[in-house]
Design a binder for these strands. Structure first.
Lengths: 247, 247
DNA sequence: CGTTTACTTGATAGGTATCAAAACGCGTGG
DNA sequence: CCACGCGTTTTGATACCTATCAAGTAAACG
């Protein structure tokens, strides 16, 4: 068990010969990601290509109705899941950030249920359908891990529905800011365009703009540039509490 | 392979000795339900109790936050999943009908994500957590089936969000009626109380009442009694189309 | 049959959509 | 570097939809 060509982090674990296994083992989000459940030896047995994909803001990761061939784990950035309702309006269902898995319906041979579009610069791992088919056969833990991912998606959907779809515009906007702060990787939070906000909160662009302007005046957030915001959590939480109190 | 004590439907298949297996094999919704994936022999190996539970309208099946010990498959009736948002309002997330599986988060050792309450008279099968734990170990197909169920719940959640949470009250009410007709077992559709409608569509009781009254006048539905409705699909679909056209 | 609860209807206020126009940010090419 | 043009955001005025408050009516229940 020579540790010569093993990266320091893995010293003491078996050497990995499969180059892809190396990449996955080194991945910063492995413990949160789909294969976190696999031990390193199992990782080494992956023969299928796990590709890393980079997307610019606005680029499509996959589109609704398309036959799904892969799921994707977000390594960095924010992806939005959106679909058109029957009146032809674009509705954003939820967001995917670091560690989230998107398009799992592909694993079941189904077509994608929504469009997935990059909101920021995004890096995802592509997990081909066949890979999971293979691995679930003898890795029971992987099956459980996938179920946990489905449940997480469901929890996200439920929370989106209860908190972002009801109440006055101001309150929904506050909740959105709270949610966005979950996806921050640094100090600055990604601030969606007004069009995106309106599609998330079911309001017009104008109302989104007005509401946000008001919150800026109240000191809930500052926007150094168009696409980033500094959110003052204490002020935000205070505003939410006052909201709830008088409602 | 004597067929003497085997019910006609199963002639030609191995005899089932486990009494519970008999009940499941005879279940009308088996092909849609969680164990549809299991062959009859596997069914026979179930040692755990699968209880049938009957609920009256308004009765609680399980409640949010409670440590989940079982999932439930709906055999008949309609169950609502609801939770309180942070402003203390009750929000109905979605409905569960014949063949739907609820509370699957219990299978993962998580607590329930929402309250489950019977809307009509309801019959469900209780699937203890341990049962699925046991079976997924050697029944790969069961694991896949459960994943399909999670995906189905997610699809439901997404549809609810895109179609029932956006647009004017009248349109949301029309979509609700369309959805309710999916849960009908006969001619008559279960008609929720105005309070329930308001919690599903994020509107007040008064608006729900007014909107529905208007649709009755337009001949979209008739209500023979308080809790049932006859929906005229052609009129309904027409109304939805006209909606979309002028929007 | 009275009492309670759910539903309906009306009048009004308030929030949001709509329509319109101005200000701003940003990339491009002069 | 600045001017230009385009898309986005902001702001204003008005109309419309829905919430709210308030009665009144119908249905459920003891």
């Amino acid at each position: 068990m020579s540790a010569a060509n093993v990266i320091p982090l893995l010293a003491g674990t078996p050497a990995l010969f499969n180059p892809q296994a190396r990449v996955c083992a080194e991945c910063g989000i492995r413990k949160h990601a789909l294969f976190g459940a696999l031990d390193l030896t199992a990782l080494d047995q992956i023969h299928v290509q796990i590709a890393t994909i980079r997307l610019a803001p606005g680029q499509l990761l996959y589109s609704a109705q398309a036959p799904g061939q892969a799921a994707y784990t977000v390594r960095s950035g924010v992806v939005r899941l959106e679909r058109l309702n029957e009146r032809g309006e674009r509705r954003i269902l939820r967001l995917g950030g670091r560690g989230d898995t998107l398009g799992m319906e592909a694993m079941l041979g189904q077509s994608y249920a929504a469009d997935a579009v990059a909101c920021t610069e995004v890096e995802v791992c592509r997990l081909p359908r066949s890979l999971v088919d293979e691995l679930t056969r003898d890795q029971v833990e992987l099956a459980r891990d996938m179920m946990r991912r489905w449940q997480r998606a469901l929890d996200d959907a439920d929370e989106w529905l209860t908190e972002l779809c009801a109440g006055p515009a101001r309150h929904r906007m506050l909740r959105l800011l709270l949610k966005l702060s979950e996806y921050a990787d640094g100090q600055a939070v990604w601030l969606p365009s007004r069009l995106e906000m309106s599609a998330m909160l079911d309001m017009t662009i104008e109302t989104a703009s007005r509401t946000l302007a008001q919150l800026k005046r109240e000191g809930v957030l500052e926007a150094p540039d168009q696409k980033h915001a500094l959110i003052h959590m204490d002020v935000l939480l205070d505003a939410l509490r006052r909201d709830a109190a008088e409602a």
